[in-house]
Simulated assay, not measured.
Amino acid sequence: MLNSLVISVHDFRSLRKASVHFITGELAHRGPTRFFSIGLSRLSMRRGDTRANLADRANRVERHEGVDCYLWKKAWHPFNMRRAQLAVPESALFRLYRLLLPSVPRRWIREADIVFIESGLAAIFIADVKRINPAARIVYLASDDLEVVDCASTIKRDFARNFDKIDTVRLPSRFLASGMPHTRSSIFVPHGIDRDMASKSYPNPYKGRTAAVSVGSMLFDASFFTTAASQFPDIDFHVIGAGKSAASLARNNIIVHPELAFVETLGYLQHAAFGIAPYRDAETPRYLIDTSLKLRQFGLFGIPAVCPNFALGAEPGRFGYVPGNAESIREAITAALANQAPIVDASCSWAEVVERILEPQAYPDTRL
């Protein structure tokens, strides 16, 4: 029985699902699993923290789908002060935050056999995990490059300083390797898919209309929908969980939905004519080709995906456009609607992903 702890700025109970949720769900099949969610504060909620709906359940243990969850909420949390002259107070705030670590996650660290630390704010706890429980194996889940997501200098400095305390660095894309101090402890394990999810039948929410769907808010480019909806008035464009980024969308055939529970989005995916990954062109990292879960979910349900050219990669069923270019958007949607070729995603299951992370030596394909 493996005793696992996950530390992340996500929360396992959140409506929105990221790769860390699926990994945690699989860990729960292997033994006692805890999820420590950090960085929730009045400041983060003012900025649109997706865990705001869980704020009244913070600072206590709650069991959810076999996982013990603890969401740490404070009046403040440390953040990127963005100015070199503020480096000292920034570092002091991060140090104080670590010192205030609650007793519950401290105990969880002591009891863990393995601790998964996701990239971002959680990286500041690498040294604390090693100090509190030197015997615990530390796995770093590199969901993003710290430089690309504009982490505070303190986080980047602590990560580099404590990097060799990490036992295994899991990279879901080889493009993330350049953001590591070295790759001696790194393994390549792409994101997985849940084939059982696509084998079920879900109610059709589209009421006979041809429809396309977008899920999530990451790098959301609202202008895509303004252009596409005017060019294809007979198609309904459903935008789910884009938050404030979608507030300006106001055409009859653009339907904006609030954040939905993950399971509620599945009918929209299964019955869509095509999916949309409307990433804006903002020096988007190359690793997005491999790490975009929405693109994998479109492939899982066998529907074409319309996405910017920089997110195409070599996967089947993706049709690219140039952000802001109306003609290329029209061509990509037309090609997606005309697609007759089967779309099959060959990704591993999430169970296989976790097995590769835990036992990489047994899988030669994890080597960089």
Rank of each mutant, 00 (worst) to 15 (best):
L358D: 04
A273N: 15
A272I: 02
R318T: 00
S153A: 14
A341E: 11
S328Q: 08
P316I: 03
A122W: 03
F22P: 00
D345I: 06
V263T: 02
R60L: 08
A112C: 10
I23A: 07
A75V: 08
D196H: 07
L358V: 14
K244D: 12
I38E: 01
G320H: 06
W76F: 11
D194W: 10
V344N: 13
I7L: 09
D68V: 08
D221S: 14
A229S: 15
R47Q: 09
S91R: 13
N133E: 15
L43C: 06
S349Y: 14
T366Y: 01
V215N: 01
E259F: 10
M180T: 06
A336N: 07
N339R: 05
P308M: 02
K130P: 06
I357L: 15
E355Y: 13
F224G: 00
R174Q: 05
L266G: 03
V67E: 07
I193A: 01
F12K: 02
R42E: 11
V148A: 04
L266Q: 04
E26H: 06
L5I: 14
S185F: 05
F12G: 04
A84E: 12
M45E: 03
S178H: 14
L293R: 00
A52Q: 09
G31V: 11
S4G: 05
C69R: 00
S201Q: 09
D11K: 02
P190N: 09
